[in-house]
Design a protein around this nucleic acid. Structure first.
Length: 170
DNA sequence: ATAACACCAAGAA
DNA sequence: TTCTTGGTGTTAT
């Protein structure tokens, strides 16, 4: 991917900065950062040279994601334009995750089967872990085969919180 | 090459 | 029930 200029918008949610980054082509990155983080400086270091700027045109997307985080209603999330880069395997996993509806869960092993790579459960977990856009690509809906919720980049507590919000779990 | 993983199934206690 | 153990595929070093 090119070092396209990155813009961002942020809001405070759950004691952290919810940060949404975009290129000219779509959302490329969502992250939760400690309140002490200098967001622009952090993103600059992460994405290369140019200093990112706040982009007010991301306001609608931000509020839609916040609405989802508060209510569990994910209407319109899957229609958000993305600009993510990944290996072919990761893209296969991510696009399969997009098919999981709100309130549903599947196991890493089942997802592996669905992409035609039935012994790759652990690799599927790796692809979930490298999902750059949590919530939009709902990797929190992929759980362990034994019913435990499993790991999550934003913390297992957040994963359970989302699944409860969606009514997928008690 | 190899080590690190958000896993899994089976088996022991 | 919890725990080990051996088996996996992909990715980054």
């Amino acid at each position: 991917m090119k070092d396209d200029r990155i813009n961002y918008i942020s809001a405070v949610f759950g004691g952290k900065h919810l940060v949404i980054c975009s290129t000219a082509h779509g959302i490329c990155h969502i992250e939760m950062l400690p309140l002490s983080t200098d967001i622009a400086a952090y993103l600059s270091k992460l994405h290369g040279n140019a200093m990112p700027a706040v982009d007010p045109s991301l306001r609608d997307i931000l509020s839609r994601i916040l609405f989802y985080l508060k209510t569990g209603d994910d209407t319109g999330l899957s229609a958000i334009k993305l600009d993510v880069c990944g290996t072919q395997f990761q893209r296969n996993v991510w696009s399969e995750i997009m098919k999981i509806k709100r309130g549903q869960v599947i196991s890493y092993g089942e997802l592996a089967r669905r992409i035609g790579n039935p012994t790759a459960a652990r690799a599927v977990a790796g692809a979930c872990a490298s999902n750059p856009v949590p919530f939009i690509i709902p990797c929190h809906r992929v759980i362990r085969g034994n019913g435990q919720t499993g790991g999550y980049g934003l913390g297992p507590l957040m994963k359970r919180r989302l699944l409860k919000l969606e009514g997928a779990i008690r």
